[in-house]
Design a protein around this nucleic acid. Sequence first.
DNA 1: ACTGATTCTTTTTTT
DNA 2: AAGAATCAGT
Length: 757
Amino acid sequence: MSTLLSGLNTEQLNAVTLPHQSALVLAGAGSGKTRVLTTRIAYLIQSRQVSPHSIIAVTFTNKAAKEMLARISTMLPINTQGMWVGTFHGLCNRMLRAHYQDAGLPQTFQILDSADQIAVIKRVLKGIGADDEKFPPRQVQWFINNAKEEGLRGSQVEAYDDFTRKMVEFYLVYEQQCNKDGMVDFAELLLRSYELLTRNEILRRHYSGRFSHILVDEFQDTSQLQYKWLKLFAGAGAAVFVVGDDDQSIYAFRGANTGNMREFEHDFRISKIIKLEQNYRSHGNILDAANTLIRNNSGRLDKNLWTSEGHGEPLRVYNAPTDFDEAAFIVDEVKSLHAGGVELSQIALLYRSNAQSRVLEHALFNASLAYRVYGGMRFFERQEIKHALAYLRMIANPDDDNALLRIINFPVRGIGARSLEQLQDDAKQLGGSLWQAALEKYSSGAVSSQASEDMETVLHSRNKKIDKPKKGVNSFVVLIEAIQQGCDELSLPEIVDHMLEHSGLVDYYRAEREGANRLENLHELINAATSYIQEAEDDSLAGFLAHASLEAGEHQSGNNQDALQLMTVHSAKGLEFHSVFLSGLEEGLFPHENSRNEAGGLEEERRLMYVALTRARRRLYLSFAQNRMLHGQTRYNIPSRFLQEIPDGLLKWLHPLQKKVITQQVPGIMGRESGTTDQVFGMLTQKSRLRMKESTIDIRDTEASRWHVGQNVTHAKFGAGVIVNREGGGADARVQVKFNHAGTKWLSLEYAKLAST
DNA sequence: ACTGATTCTTTTTTT
DNA sequence: AAGAATCAGT
């Protein structure tokens, strides 16, 4: 007990030991939020004799849920399996599985991730002959999800204009399709379980009675519907303990509603907000920068982070000519940090959008630095895995049209658009799934052909209609049935293995030239199944499939070696690192240009920036590039306004060698002496920009002219050699070097650190 | 039905 | 720049 609470500061202790009442904890970045939550749970169980069975803890990501469970079990020797800890979506799934009948769902209902959802929408649109130029599937998806988030069914949405009426129509057909196939999208998980509780009084009583304590992490990220869902769970008697930081709300695009914090204050009669303001993570300068920046936002709940640590280093700012230079700079700095004893895994490279990782990866790869990219293409989103999952879905529930369409001709078995159309028509007539239609066709060559037709036509049409397409469809039906039968008595990993072998997927990718990686992923899927049955209490195939949809990421066939961490700012939330590089600080990128048109968009971007800054413990690099390649063309950018919102005194500007000259030529641009914002930052005139560019090239050319054919050189990695050729000029200058021991290579003078010997 | 070529389009962030 | 989607030719 005393060990449980030791080391907590006054506010933390206060929060942890609160009596049975609802509470709002406003917890700044790095203020020990997770610790407070987990300790509170442990404290409730240990000192208040609260049964783990009556505690529910909601987190925002699966990762956070896992970590919470792990921390609790180190504090208390209890079985955490009975506890309800998870994301909103995860918990809703759990509930719907338990009461699938009451919820009007088939036992094997499938969860659609966004990509699946788009696919279904596309199919639906095509099915009713809608013009997908005029109604882009993305927009339809957005409409549907928004409606669901507001708690509205297709029949309840009010439409006053043609466009909306059309959208509603799509929504209705989409709903129908989902119901028919037993599919549930993310928003549906929430809405469905919300409705279940609203309608079903017995269940509602059961749950609101069962949970005496509800704890919510990252409360600022909850949506309207999620909040209503919470209130339903809480009923009248539960103590609801929510922890959040309005400054770190970065999911408004997904429906997060900071206003929930104020509503909560009101709804649950919170008399005093508990504030955790001592930061245990970052040095003073970093914190000051973050605090100053975020003060530019309006309507914040008041809070100011402080630290008892010293100021530490200034933030380092780097102005790179191009994104390549930026990457090269980062690589250099990482190397010296690493050489100085900082573990690679303690260094993070953060960026606003996933696409930015490419340049960085390229540079890191060439420098042979170990790195790991989070997010981006996730494990369960890869095409080979999606294919494999589709086969598994067919085993679990063959009426899943979506899954069927994905794999009916993959690997190819001669089923083209023609036979598919046929099948879809049959299904429509039958009023059943594609699978049922396929079965019908396959199992009965002599189906009730219309008696009115004469014999010849029947024979004729049978030969043409049934024989030919039947071949393909037939083989598919046989295959799926064979796999299904083969799965009896098998464990989950064995089912996966069995499916992989017999579906032909393994053979397909084995034959593919670039298939090695995909093969590896397919095998990794077996491992994923193995670890799933070890961790989850429900080891059914349906459970595994739900898991795959809900937890798309975090399963990488990865090694645990010390590696740099690359991720978006969003996915860095909740993490901390010794050193952080924040790259791409340019207008249009961060803040992102799309945020301009959205209400509150800029403030959300600023919060995102705040999150990014507060990830760093000791050292923080901020960098931007004047030119950046985007969608295949170069864009000229001006530095992010957020840079300017950080006090000068906290920044230390780093300049590459060439830059010194530029500074002299164009004073007032690089130096940040007095002057209006526009002069300093941005609005570089076309002319001055040009001047900068020219001067850069000039210098480079001098740089390049240092090298000539026949010169003896050494390279850090390849050793000694002689220049045998050179081409290009300016930024593109390259030399061909014949190395004594490493063959002949073309090297870019810009990056290859050649030394003359 | 399949292949190769051409055009199009890109998510900002995630359950 | 790269991948997906569509189109044309076989």
